[in-house]
Design a protein around this nucleic acid. Structure first.
Length: 304
DNA sequence: TTGTGTTTTATTGCCTCC
DNA sequence: GGAGGCAATAAAACACAA
């Protein structure tokens, strides 16, 4: 009975041959009749579902090793007894109808030419009007519904491809933006470092100024005292502040005083020109803030 | 040969439009 | 309410590696 195994990818023809060989052996062994009717009955007994997979005539011809085709079907059956012929007809009819509707054929792929014609038609217009559907169906020997289904599935495939294309475009745009963002981030970092260095220079300049003032203080004190003696309204103190604007004790220099100090020290030739130029430019653009040096947040990620 | 993944054909259920 | 479109899915056919 190992012969009767079922395999989904096993062809019906091969299986019929195997069954036939097995039946012949079985019949010989048990002295059973070896007529074609007996073989088919035996076959149907063992494989009641098989009558749906292949039509009975194919099975019968296969079992009898006499293949028949199309118009010869009735002729092939003429060799059967009347009762058996009637049974075949009855089974054929049962096989053709199920719950009042026709049993559908097994799923068949469209031929190359059919697909080519449908593709051509789809390229012209991916929507199918009833007239075109009927015409195409007639030309290709298909059911109008098959044509409609093909167009429907083709539209779905086209849509999927289109989505993939759109995605790849968006992806490449995103990659470009990301590279630009990384460059800007790097630039921002460089500028931040540069600003920090400038700030340190400013503080260092202030310290140097304080030291130099300490050295000059006895002279100025004498001068101040003399001036205050001659003029008691404090004008001289202002003059001394003009000479050294950064030296206002106890607070950081204001931006205007920093500029004045730069001009002052430039006249003496101590800070370098580049430093002054950058500093002035930042001052003009209101970029400079003593407590905050970052140009923009680096935490902000690029978005499309 | 067989298991598995992909493609193609077909069905079902829902929605929109006329 | 019927026709047609669409998304989700089933199932058969096919391709291919092991």
């Amino acid at each position: 009975m190992i012969w009767f195994h079922r395999n989904p990818q096993h062809s019906v023809e091969n299986e019929n041959i195997e069954v036939t060989v097995c039946l012949l052996l079985f019949s010989t062994f048990f002295h059973l009749p070896q007529s074609i009717e007996w073989r088919i009955c035996f076959y149907l007994l063992l494989f009641p579902s098989m009558k749906r997979l292949n039509n009975l005539d194919t099975m019968a011809t296969s079992l009898s090793m006499c293949p028949s085709k199309g118009v010869n079907e009735r002729k092939e059956r003429q060799g059967y007894s009347e009762e058996f012929q009637a049974m075949l007809d009855r089974l054929d009819q049962e096989d053709s109808y199920e719950d009042g509707s026709l049993v559908l054929e097994k799923k068949r792929r469209l031929s190359f030419d059919q697909v080519k014609a449908l593709e051509r038609s789809f390229e012209l217009d991916n929507k199918l009007e009833p007239e075109r559907k009927s015409k195409l169906a007639e030309e290709l020997g298909l059911e109008p519904r098959q044509v409609a289904i093909w167009f429907q599935n083709r539209r779905a495939r086209w849509k999927t491809k289109q989505l993939e294309r759109d995605y790849s475009i968006l992806r490449s745009n995103y990659d470009v933006l990301k590279v630009e963002y990384n460059n800007l981030e790097q630039e921002n970092e460089t500028l931040t470092i540069q600003v920090r260095e400038l700030k340190e220079k400013v503080l260092r300049g202030k310290a140097e100024c304080n030291e130099s003032l300490k050295e000059e203080s006895p002279i100025s004190e004498v001068r101040d005292r003399g001036a205050s003696e001659s003029n008691s309204n404090g004008v001289v103190k202002e003059e001394s502040n003009v000479d050294s604007p950064l030296c206002v004790s106890g607070s950081l220099p204001s931006s205007s005083s920093v500029i004045n100090w730069l001009q002052y020290s430039d006249s003496r030739g101590s800070p370098d020109k580049m430093f002054q130029t950058q500093f002035m430019r930042m001052e003009e653009q209101n970029f400079f803030n003593v407590n905050e040096f970052c140009f923009f947040s680096v935490d902000q990620s690029p978005t499309l």
